[in-house]
């Protein structure tokens, strides 16, 4: 595959006061140019830490291992200055809470201008024109007066649009998006997802979309990677993974959703509780909750294996799923 970004055996350990937290453990990912890859999992599964590790936005207390390859260079070992260039010109980021990422005391216009100044050679007039273009591009009408406004004068959806405009200022080839629509109403989510998909295709951008919503994955992502307890469960083309999962966790997650089943029928929850990642299991982290578990699942770690073209799964039951509904 022609790769834009390749993540190899990414590991992140936090040295917290209570002990070590193994937030990300042996994650491999690859994103092709123009591709939308979904990273999906329940809260605490390590999605945001993965994304922040790729963008090198984690603080010093995090111990990071593995490689993040961008155009042949490992971002994890890149000196600060070169990293700044990559971040600006190659990789843009947007987050769930634009309010936390935006500066509350600077106008939206100044914040876009800052990004343009850092990442383009445009002069003041050029930057002003480009800022208006960017607001247009992300669907904010009345750009001239909007640029003078402050983040608190924007609605949640408008703030997310402004965040996207700032991320686009440097013409990135890859957009890292961490739950960009989770805090929004479903109508505004629909608008923002459409906007992101349009930008991906018009600007030939790739996107890593972190979400906990399998419905969002289904309608936006070309491929999906499922995470549990800091580890990757399976990866593959979205429709294949969602309609014929090859990992017992993906299978259980899909069955737990309120679906097309009979109204008011009991749902199928996943028994037990989310895993502890301060004491990682030597075997499969899902084993204590897994209805397909076999004895070796407790002690032997299932390796990621190719199960079909473009599909891989780390589950001993990968060939037993989906047979009995």
């Amino acid at each position: 595959m022609n790769e834009l970004l390749r993540v190899e055996q990414l590991g992140v350990v936090f040295h917290a006061a209570r002990g070590r937290v193994y937030a990300v453990d042996g994650v491999d990912l690859a994103i092709a140019p123009g591709e939308v890859l979904g990273l999906v999992g329940e809260s605490g599964s390590g999605k945001s830490v993965t994304l922040r590790a790729i963008a090198r936005l984690l603080h010093e207390e995090a111990h990071i291992t593995g490689r993040v390859l961008w155009q042949g260079r490992d971002l994890l070992t890149l000196p600060a200055r070169a990293l700044e260039q990559v971040r600006g010109a190659g990789i843009g980021t947007i987050f769930q809470e634009p309010m936390a990422a935006l500066n509350p005391v600077l106008s939206i216009g100044l914040q876009i201008d800052e990004s343009l100044r850092a990442h383009t050679g445009l002069d003041a007039a050029g930057r002003r024109a480009r800022a208006r273009e960017l607001l247009d591009l992300v669907g904010i009408a009345d750009a001239a007066s909007r640029l003078r406004q402050y983040p608190h004068e924007f609605s949640g959806g408008m703030r997310q649009r402004a965040m996207i405009a700032i991320a686009l200022a440097a013409n990135p080839k890859l957009l890292l998006a961490d739950e960009p629509t989770t805090a929004l109403d479903v109508t505004i989510q629909d608008q923002i997802l459409r906007l992101l998909l349009r930008l991906v295709s018009e600007l030939s951008m790739a996107m890593l979309l972190v979400t906990h919503d399998l419905g969002v994955v289904a309608s936006t992502c070309d491929r999906v990677a499922v995470m549990y307890a800091g580890r990757l469960c399976e990866t593959g083309p979205t429709a294949q993974v969602l309609h014929a999962p090859r990992h017992a966790y993906t299978d259980a997650l899909l069955r737990a959703l309120p679906g097309e089943g009979a109204a008011r029928a009991r749902l199928q929850p996943i028994p037990g509780m989310p895993p502890r990642i301060d004491h990682p299991s030597p075997g499969c982290p899902f084993a204590p909750r897994c209805t397909h578990a076999e004895p070796r699942c407790d002690r032997e770690r299932p390796a990621m294996q190719d199960v079909a073209p473009g599909r891989a799964s780390a589950c001993f039951a990968q060939d037993r799923l989906g047979v009995a509904a």
Partner: peptide
């Protein structure tokens, strides 16, 4: 506007 598992693409035009 609701994204569903069954739906592979977003229907044309914003909801």
């Amino acid at each position: 506007a609701v994204p569903t598992i069954a739906q592979a693409t977003r229907p044309a035009g914003p909801a």
